[in-house]
Design a protein around this nucleic acid. Structure first.
Length: 952
DNA sequence: GATTAGAAATTTTTT
DNA sequence: ATTTCTAATC
């Protein structure tokens, strides 16, 4: 794009006033915003410091900055400190500069200083939070009943963060501004949604959606005695809507105790975090907002003449309000696309953009309610729609709009007309009509995908447009591997696919988690840390460093035994020793070895955050790295792009990117859209406020936890919606420039079936491609972590090969069905073999043939000494047959799993040792029962020594 | 069409 | 823990 189209020009040149810009995918949004920024900054009386430009991610901010530098009279140096960044970085800057007494507005004594760090690692925050909850529990016996009903402290942290994102803050004495009101909910909004859901359907002949959802009320629930019965809730049989009094009754639930609890835990955690000198991302925004709200002088100083926000559909309520507090004029411009709002789990609120005017005026009024904070009245909001798509062909544009109205389940009814009314239809810039939009399906989806890629690459049929940015005509050329991206909903599918690709020698790169501390930069860093620390591990450090420097084994032995280290290395050690922080050490080490890629960068920040967050010594850090190496923890590293490889990404990660050919994989039933899942124990919703899903009462003179009937009604008032899932589908489809392929395995999901695209059965026939120079990313499949700090499950003893063999061979569903049956049969439950399932008959026959007692054992623990350390191996015993003088363990396997006997033997051996201890005077045997053949095979158990050796 | 019971599934990611 | 889909019965 070299010059803006008329709509873009309008946005670029309309620098003053309030603008809401609907910029769909591929409409040249970044181009237009950067030009607008340049236009504004070129005015005589405007400096970069007067313009706030906010985006969602650091990457996006960096890209904006680069493109502005390229198109304005300002250079990189002058724009270095310009306020172009994320909301979080902005809040961080504000608090760092001026935030010292920000907590005082909430009545908190602790201050925010330059040494207050931002905790990026959620696992570390989780650790702190659990410590805090322990302390809180001790301090507050009056909240014990409530705490009893919460098993996972993370639930509490979740609700705190949710409240913070919605602008609900506590003070020492009570709640900040009108927060308490919000916590009780919005009666009008609740009434609206309730009445809508309670309207009888089919012109009054069919019961309302709400009444239907409440069919399950009271099933499997244990309420306090005063809870209304199902009949009271649902009205008499045959009625079409639930009685009106139910609405007011659930809305007016007594929540004083809950509010008191949430208040105390919230405000005390704020104090705790400050006393430990850290803030999380939510609190960063919380304090920045409060400070700007209360400190008039500061607000005057900080407000900007121009405010621009990109990706506005991804902002939260608190971010919208922050932007208003920072706007000194009406010159506010928000750019976004409601159709691409896919971050609600990050508290993004799509209504910020769909209800922009309403919210704008409501928030301004709210912020001005007790004193005047915002001068601008925003009487006029100009809306600009960008409707030219420079990315995709018209065919892809049209299909993607279908995605916004496809039902997510067979029974979901989407009001297509209402949705499409809000869609600005895009017109493709190109008139090329070469697009393939197709869907393939085969049981073996991985190989089908690879076969399809093989068919596409180099194929004129799937030609892609070339040289578009050069301003020339759309020449077509055959596609390469690097033109293709595979997008999936889940990371797991991407990883599995990559494993298959590796087997077949396909050039494919996965952009996701990497076992960070097992990489070379990490090993060298650990080595130098060990050298610095001295002691017994110093030699291990030197060995790595010397090996890296090219010393032979004999030379290394000599150097280590005499201590005559090379003088350059000694000098480097002394230099490192003089550095104050561990992260400075890391930087110097990476520098020395020329590691400047993404891996080194992520390592630095990870170490920095761990070191900052805790009061770790260098020795602690060494042990931290050792633990990370051992557990194989993964961290995000974005691989270098540019090689000719197919990219695999999640849809979320692909947002903002574009690819000539997009393969949208794993469109399988129950995968996308996904169902199920659960919320925390305490839930906040704007409409019905703060609620707890359980309640408490006395039984047998003891406090007990009960199901909360209020919640059981309320949860039906927020039925599952697939709106965001549709938007996710939309985002995925609109990444494609030229071609779009959907793939499914077993059973295509509703989305795929309802889209106007024919699904064809596709026979995979993977051919190993003749790949020239390509870079292939390796991905190691991690073995599941053992439960407990020092426990090992037999599963964790498996090596990769065995694990894969088991995973493929077992046929999870098949095996677990037989297993399930065996257990229930042994327990004497009333189960009959299914008439068509031979396996179950075999199992029943076997079990009937046993004399004596059949038992299902839950857990077995075997203590073991490994490398002088005491460890406990934990496993689940399946079925134990105890006779007078013999004990037998039986494990059920289909014949499919035969080749994975190694793994079975490890498991059974663990059980065998355990049972030998429990029944010292009976003969213990371990057997596998191959159900498909009706064959019982006795296993030779492994010795404890062998099992121990497997654990290294 | 209402009701009931049972089976089979069940995350995404950024600051 | 929650959801969808199915089948059977009223």
């Amino acid at each position: 794009m070299t010059s803006p189209n008329p709509r873009q020009r309008e946005l670029i040149e309309s620098t003053d006033g309030c603008y809401l810009v609907d910029a769909g995918p591929g409409t040249g949004k970044t181009f237009t915003i950067t030009r607008r920024y340049a236009e504004i900054v070129e005015q005589d009386d405007v400096e970069p410091d007067d313009i706030l430009l906010n985006t969602f991610t650091r990457n996006a901010a960096t890209e904006m900055r680069d493109r502005i530098v390229a198109h304005s009279e300002y250079g990189a140096r002058e724009l270095r400190d310009a306020p172009i960044g994320t909301f979080h970085s902005l809040c961080n800057d504000i608090l760092r500069e001026h935030g010292f007494d920000a907590p005082s507005h909430l009545g908190l004594d602790e201050a925010i200083t330059r040494s207050t760090s931002v905790l990026e690692d959620e696992t570390i925050e989780g650790k702190y939070f659990r410590e805090f909850v322990g302390k809180f529990t001790d301090d507050h016996p009056e909240h014990h009943d409530l705490l009893r009903a919460i098993s996972d402290p993370d639930d509490i942290l979740d609700v705190i963060k949710n409240l913070a994102a919605n602008g609900v803050f506590p003070t020492m004495e009570g709640w900040y501004r009108d927060a308490e009101e919000q916590l009780y909910g919005d009666a009008d909004a609740f009434e609206a949604v309730f009445e809508e859901l309670n309207r009888p359907r089919n012109g009054g002949s069919k019961q309302s959606e709400l009444r239907e959802s409440l069919t399950d009320y009271d099933s499997d629930a244990c309420y306090l005695p005063d809870a209304p019965s199902r009949a009271e809730i649902r009205g008499e049989s045959g009625s079409k809507a639930i009685p009106g009094h139910v609405r007011t009754r659930v809305f007016e639930e007594d929540r004083e105790g809950l509010l008191a609890f949430v208040h105390d835990v919230y405000v005390e955690y704020l104090a705790f975090a400050l006393s430990r000198n850290y803030l999380n991302f939510s609190f960063l925004q919380l304090f920045a907002f409060v400070h700007l709200c209360e400190n008039e002088a500061l607000r005057d100083r900080l407000t900007f003449e121009y405010v621009m926000i990109d990706e506005f559909q991804d902002t939260s309520e608190i971010q919208f309000k922050l932007a208003l507090l920072l706007a000194g004029t009406e010159n506010v411009c928000v750019v976004g696309d409601w159709k691409q709002s896919i971050y609600s789990f990050q508290y993004a609120d799509v209504e910020n953009i769909t209800q922009f005017q309403d919210r704008l005026h409501r928030f301004v009024e709210d912020l001005n309610s007790d004193r005047s904070r915002i001068d601008a009245s925003f009487d006029e909001v100009n809306e600009i729609e960008l409707d030219r798509n420079y990315r995709s062909t018209q065919a892809i544009v049209n299909r993607s709009e279908d995605a916004l109205v496809v039902p997510g389940t067979g029974s979901e009814e989407v009001d297509a007309e209402a949705v499409l009314e809000d869609v600005v239809s895009l017109e493709a810039e190109t008139d090329a009509d070469h697009s393939h939009i197709e869907a393939i399906q085969h049981e073996n989806e991985h190989e089908a995908v690879l076969t399809k890629i093989g068919e596409i690459v180099g194929n004129e049929e799937y030609a892609v447009r070339d040289d578009r940015d050069g301003g020339g005509s759309d020449g077509l050329r055959p596609p390469r591997y690097g033109d293709i991206a595979i997008l999936t909903r889940t990371r797991d599918f991407g990883r599995e696919l990559l494993a298959t690709a590796e087997e077949h020698g396909f050039p494919m790169a996965y952009e996701g988690g990497v076992e960070l501390f097992r990489t070379d930069p990490a090993k060298l860093l650990l080595a130098w840390l060990r050298i610095l620390e001295g002691g017994t591990d110093e030699d291990r450090g030197w060995a790595v460093v010397l090996e890296r420097a090219g010393y032979t084994l004999d030379e290394m032995k000599h150097v280590l035994s005499t201590g005559s280290y090379p003088s350059g290395m000694v000098a480097f050690r002394d230099e490192l020793d003089g550095l104050e922080t561990v992260s400075a050490v890391a930087h110097r080490v990476f520098d020395r070895y020329g590691y400047d890629g993404p891996t080194a960068e992520v390592l630095s920040t990870t170490i920095q955050s761990v070191y900052d967050a805790t009061t770790m010594t260098r020795g602690d850090l060494i042990r931290f790295i050792e633990r990370e190496v051992e557990s194989g923890a993964t961290h995000e590293v974005t691989a270098a792009a540019g090689s000719n490889a197919v990219r695999v990404q999640t849809i979320h990660a692909a947002k903002g990117l574009e690819y000539p050919i997009v393969i949208l994989a794993n469109m399988n039933a129950n995968k996308f859209p996904s169902t199920g899942g659960s919320d925390g124990r305490i839930v906040y919703d704007e409409r019905f406020g703060l609620r707890q899903r359980t309640c408490y009462g006395e039984a047998h003179d003891q406090p007990h936890v009960y199901d909360n009937w209020y919640w059981d009604v309320l949860k039906c008032c927020r039925p599952t919606e697939y709106d965001e899932e549709r938007r996710l589908l939309y985002v995925a489809m609109t990444r494609a420039e030229d071609h779009l392929v959907f793939t499914a395995g077993e059973e295509p999901n509703t989305f795929l079936e309802e889209l106007p695209v024919a699904v064809e059965t596709y026979e995979p026939a993977v051919e190993r491609p003749a790949v020239g120079e390509t870079v292939q990313t390796r991905f190691d499949v991690g073995i599941p972590e053992p439960a407990g700090p020092r426990g090992y499950s037999p599963h964790s003893l498996m090596n990769d090969e065995v694990f894969e063999a088991v995973d493929e061979g077992r046929g999870a569903e098949y095996g677990s069905r037989v297993h399930n049956f065996a257990e229930r049969y042994a327990l004497g439950e009333d189960v009959e073999p299914r008439s068509d399932e031979e396996d179950e008959h075999h199992v029943a026959e076997l079990l009937d043939s046993f004399e004596g007692e059949l038992r299902v054992e839950e857990d077995a623990y075997m203590p073991l000494e490994v490398d002088g350390e005491q460890v406990t191996i934990r496993g689940v015993v399946d079925l134990v047959h105890v006779a007078e003088d013999a004990v037998e363990i039986v494990d059920y396997k289909t014949v499919l799993g035969r080749h994975a006997e190694d793994e079975y033997r490890t498991q059974l051996s663990v059980y065998w040792h355990v049972l030998n201890e429990v029944y010292p005077d009976r003969a213990v045997t371990a057997s596998l029962f191959y159900t498909a053949e009706g064959e019982l095979v006795e296993m030779e158990p492994l010795s404890k020594d062998v099992i121990g050796s497997l654990m290294e």
